Computed example of a mutant assay.
Amino acid sequence: MKQPFGVILAGGQARRMGGGDKGALMLGGQSLLRHVIDRLDPQVDALALNANGDAARFEAYGLPVLPDSIDGFVGPLAGVLAGLDWAASQGAETIVTAAADTPFFPCDLVPRLMEAAEGMEYPLALASTDGRHPTFGLWPVTLREDLRAALSGGLRKIVQWTDQHCAQTASFAVAEFDPFFNINTPEDLAHAEGLL
């Protein structure tokens, strides 16, 4: 299997943080998005950002910005689909997604997901600690039309779709804290500062 492309999911509306881009929040002198880019970029062949609205606000990062192709903020699967369409146009076979509000995810995310999906006709795997973290996954480009049809048909829950395709699980250990801890509230941001 070729090295996947990476897609950072930043298309959410950040309601619990008062709206705006969670990725722009500062943590230890860097934006959350910069932390995520620095972790994912060395693990993938190319990197893009899934975000809606004015792409110019991300210009400083120098990444392609992929808006959802399905209207109405239908959730992370729309970002996965945008990433799969981009990867397909570049000749890639798979993508790995990571959430823009999760600065401590494992530095071996990609190889572990690829290992979990080894031997599958359609390599599909989700990260897991105590439960699955469905915004952290390996997704095959070959299933993008199936995903598009599912979204058009009203499907919104990631695991509902991945279970239909026998997604595997890559399990990660929890040491002092869950590496997939994500920042949803101002309290979470303060906690992350402490973890840094």
Rank of each mutant, 00 (worst) to 15 (best):
Q43T: 05
A55M: 02
D146C: 03
P42R: 11
F73G: 14
H133C: 07
E118W: 08
A117W: 09
G137R: 11
Y122K: 05
A125V: 09
D85R: 15
P103M: 06
G137I: 01
G119E: 05
S69K: 01
T135P: 07
R112S: 11
D130V: 10
E115Y: 02
A92N: 02
A127Q: 11
A56F: 06
L113R: 06
R112T: 14
P123C: 08
A82I: 01
F104A: 03
F105E: 11
T94P: 00
D85W: 08
F136I: 03
Q43W: 03
G79I: 01
V44H: 05
E145N: 10
N50E: 07
G79L: 00
G83L: 09
P67N: 12
L126D: 08
D54A: 15
L138S: 07
V80E: 03
G119C: 00
S128G: 10
P64C: 13
S69T: 15
G83S: 07
P103G: 04
L81S: 08
D71K: 08
A87C: 10
A98S: 12
D41Q: 15
E118P: 03
D45L: 11
S69N: 01
L113I: 14
A88G: 08
L81R: 08
A87W: 09
V110A: 03
A116H: 09
L40D: 04
V110P: 06
S69F: 01
A125S: 13
R112D: 08
A92H: 12
A92G: 15
Y122P: 00
W139H: 13
G72F: 02
P42N: 04
T129N: 04
Q90D: 04
D146R: 12
V110R: 13
M114R: 15
E59I: 04
E59S: 14
G79C: 02
L77S: 11
I95H: 08
R112M: 05
A88L: 06
L126Y: 08
W86S: 06
Q90V: 06
L124S: 12
R39A: 10
L63T: 12
S89P: 06
